[in-house]
Amino acid sequence: MPTYRLRVNDVDHELDLPGDTPLLWALREELGLTGPKYGCGVGACGACVSLVDGEAARPCVRTVAETDGRRVTTIEGLSEDGDHPVQRAWLECDVAQCGYCQPGQIMSTVALLAADPDPGDEAIDRALRDNVCRCGTYVRIREAVRLAARLTRKER
Score class of each variant (00 low, 15 high):
Cys60Val: 09
Arg140Val: 06
Glu143His: 08
Gly104Asp: 00
Met107His: 01
Ala115His: 12
Ser108Asp: 02
Ala89Gln: 03
Ser108Glu: 01
Pro85Phe: 02
Val132Met: 09
Glu14Ser: 10
His84Tyr: 07
Gln105Cys: 03
Asp53Arg: 07
Ala89Cys: 08
Leu6Ile: 09
Glu66Ile: 04
Pro2Met: 13
Val11Tyr: 14
Ile106Lys: 00
Arg7Met: 12
Ala123Cys: 12
Pro36Lys: 05
Val86Ala: 04
Val95His: 00
Asp116Gln: 14
Glu66Leu: 09
Leu24Phe: 02
Ala115Asn: 13
Arg88Ser: 09
Asp116Val: 12
Met1Phe: 09
Leu112Ser: 04
Cys60Asp: 07
Pro59Lys: 04
Arg70Tyr: 10
Cys40Phe: 09
Trp90Tyr: 05
Arg70Gly: 15
Arg142His: 14
Arg126His: 13
Thr34His: 13
Asp20Ala: 13
Tyr138Cys: 11
Leu147Arg: 14
Asp118Val: 15
Leu33Ala: 05
Tyr4Ile: 06
Leu31Met: 14
Val52Gly: 07
Gly35Phe: 00
Pro2Asp: 14
Leu147His: 06
Ala44Trp: 13
Asp16Ala: 10
Thr152Gly: 12
Glu92Lys: 09
Ala47Tyr: 00
Cys98Asp: 03
Leu128Trp: 02
Ala144Met: 04
Gly82Lys: 02
Asp10Asn: 11
